[in-house]
Simulated assay, not measured.
Amino acid sequence: MTGSFGLDLALLMLRVAAGGFLLPHALGKLLGWFGGPGLGGFAGELRGFGLPSAAPLPLLLALLQVLSGLAVLLGWQTRVAALAAAAFIGFTTLLALPKGWFWMRGGVEYPLMWTFILLAIACAGPGAWALDGPLLQGDLA
C-alpha cells in the first residue's frame, strides 16, 4: 500500500476542498446555478477583462472548470485535472493583480491560495482514496 493513513486523509481533504469549492463556481458559469452568471454573464465577465468572449470560448472554459473540479473532487485523472484547474485559477490570479493583494478588494490573495493548493495536489497525486488511487483500483502492492 502506498502512502500512509494521515497523508491519504490529507490528500482526500485537499481534493474535496479544491474540487468542492471549484465545482459550484464552474456550474454557476456554465448553468447559472448558485447565483452564477450563466454562459452569457460569463462571456460578459470575459469582455470586462478585455478577453475574447465569442462562442464557444465561454462554454469551453466553463466546461474545463466543471470537468477539472469534478475530476479533482473524485480523484480521477487527478494530476492533469489539478494542473488544468490551477492554470484556470492562475489566470484569474493574473487578472486580479492590478487590484493588489487582499481579496476583499478583488486582489490576488484568494485565487493565489487556490492555485497553490491545486498545484500541490498535482504534485502529490490523489492519495489512496481516489478513483486513481490504489485502494479503489485494487492495487495494494
Rank of each mutant, 00 (worst) to 15 (best):
W103I: 12
G106F: 14
K29L: 12
P98H: 11
L59F: 14
L112D: 09
L30E: 03
L140M: 02
L140P: 02
L131T: 02
G41T: 04
L140A: 01
Q65W: 10
V80Q: 13
P58R: 02
E109Y: 10
P111G: 12
L74P: 07
L119P: 02
L27E: 09
I117T: 11
P56M: 05
A96W: 13
A128V: 00
L74Q: 03
G20H: 08
G127Y: 06
L70E: 00
L57W: 14
A54M: 08
L74V: 10
R47H: 06
G133T: 05
Q65Y: 13
D8P: 11
D8S: 15
L83N: 04
G3F: 12
A85R: 02
L11V: 11
L23D: 05
A26F: 12
D8R: 08
L63E: 07
I117M: 10
G41H: 02
L74W: 07
L112M: 14
T93A: 14
D139L: 11
A124Q: 04
M13L: 15
A54C: 08
W101N: 05
L74S: 02
R47F: 00
V66N: 03
L46D: 03
G44P: 07
W129Y: 10
G75Y: 06
D139A: 08
L61C: 13
F102N: 11
S68N: 01
A55M: 11
G127E: 02
C123A: 11
G28Y: 13
V16K: 06
G41M: 01
M13R: 06
L51F: 14
L135G: 00
P52I: 05
P126K: 01
A120G: 15
F88W: 10
G36Q: 00
G19I: 10
A71V: 05
Q65D: 11
A71E: 00
R47V: 07
A62W: 10
A55L: 13
A17H: 08
P37C: 05
V80I: 15
P98A: 12
T2Y: 13
Q137P: 00
A141P: 13
G40Y: 01
